[in-house]
Design a protein around this nucleic acid. Structure first.
Lengths: 247, 247
DNA sequence: AATACCATGTACGTTACCGCACATAGTGGA
DNA sequence: TCCACTATGTGCGGTAACGTACATGGTATT
């Protein structure tokens, strides 16, 4: 068997997740005893469609995709969640499951919180509730924009957006990700990604090599991306009031 | 000026909205004094992007589209809301606005409830809160599926889905809707809709004439539609537990 | 009844993406 | 060192939807 990469222990504190970090100390203190750190590996499935979720996850340095897989096997990414958010919103929204699947797209850490603990704290109707609901709205924005993007924008633009969303959720400009996997997320052919990525490399915006992608010119990536990236970013910043003005 | 159609007064009771109907009598009684009935006309804009909402709307027999309009004027429908739901979820989710716009797609009635009244009742953390959150999850499902649909399905299939979603929210099989408007919702060319609708008419599934569409064979429409319609319907039924099993 | 407008039909070249087939080149394990 | 595997590159015909242009035929206004 291939030697697993030693779980790069870089972000292991609850505060590495922005939502947990935003909680008042006393709220966080209540949760701490029940928060469990876990390393999530590439490809790991956190939730299967229509199966009751057993816990929420607060990513610290992993990235998780919400994917819908169709009957014929084709797939499409609905949203992506990293250290800015939480997985399993259906637990407090009341549905307990969704028709989509949650797959780890970039290995890393996350804190899990059991279902009961989530509901208990949510039912205090305090800051955690309000924070979770606001985050859920930002997730809604992301999904809505994904719908728009899928309708109107080219693969080239969508790849730019996807890369930006990914590096925003990591601490560095590199990601471990094959074109095949990106194609799965975007719901396009692998060859389409090869072509789009080739153009970006030729432009000097990224470099890549067998599953390792590095973003060289973030600014240019933003220009080449469609407006969807900025719309979601602005709205997310607004909702979770991270610096109302970022310039 | 063209004589406005006399506001067809067909659904004017709060219980004509499924969410209001699901509330316990005492809860509804609290809301009643502040619920205001209004006739919403075709094309009316309920919310503008990024503008604070002033009330929620519970449709009784109108249909409202959540639309995102891009910088270049192109648009795409994100979700559709009728008597099964409520408009303005951002008011209780905490964001107060969204980047999208809400436009009346089919004229009809709705009850509005002022912002403060919504928050007051929501903050009781009772059945209204739970109902609204579950509805919001069903809205999330719809948006997610719209993203998938935009990625993978043909205009033909999407038109079928769109027609089904529309007549589900009306009491009859007819809708007043030009192909131009449908094209705006789907985010495709008007000619594309003409072609798709032409095929459906040739098959005897619908008939239409200058802005009047009638569905003749609902069953066939479901077969011709993509799986997205059924996924959203099943999930919505589950979440708002309207007959857990519908067969 | 005449007219202006609007909804729909149709045609045609263009483009983005698909499906498929196959070539090339790193990489890890035997 | 060799081999098998995986990731990426490339070419080609097919197709769905686009942009544009224009024709036809209802409907409302005068």
């Amino acid at each position: 068997m291939k030697t697993a990469h030693p779980p790069t222990v870089s972000a292991i504190r609850p505060e590495d997740n922005h939502l947990l970090a935003a909680l008042a100390p006393c709220t966080l203190a209540r949760l701490l005893p029940r928060l469990k750190f876990a390393h999530l590996s590439l490809g790991q499935v956190l939730y299967e469609p229509d199966v009751e979720m057993r816990q929420v996850y607060f990513p610290t340095d992993c990235i998780v995709s919400l994917l819908y897989v169709m009957q014929d096997g084709a797939s499409a990414e609905i949203a992506v969640v990293g250290n800015e958010g939480v997985l399993g919103v259906s637990l407090f929204m009341g549905g307990e499951s969704t028709p989509s699947r949650a797959v780890v797209q970039s290995a890393g850490g996350a804190f899990s919180l059991p279902r009961l603990a989530v509901k208990e704290e949510f039912n205090r109707h305090g800051e955690l509730m309000h924070l979770m609901l606001r985050y859920t709205q930002s997730l809604i924005t992301q999904m809505a924009q994904t719908a728009v993007c899928n309708r109107h924008h080219t693969v080239d633009q969508q790849l730019c957006r996807w890369l930006l969303m990914s590096i925003d959720r990591l601490s560095c400009n590199r990601l471990l990700m094959t074109q095949e996997l990106i194609a799965n997320m975007l719901g396009v052919r692998r060859e389409g990604v090869t072509e789009a990525a080739g153009k970006l490399q030729k432009l000097g915006v990224i470099t890549y090599k067998r599953g390792k992608i590095e973003v060289l010119d973030r600014g240019r990536l933003e220009v080449l991306s469609c407006e969807c990236y900025a719309v979601v970013k602005r709205e997310t910043d607004r909702l979770l009031n991270r610096k109302p003005r970022q310039h």
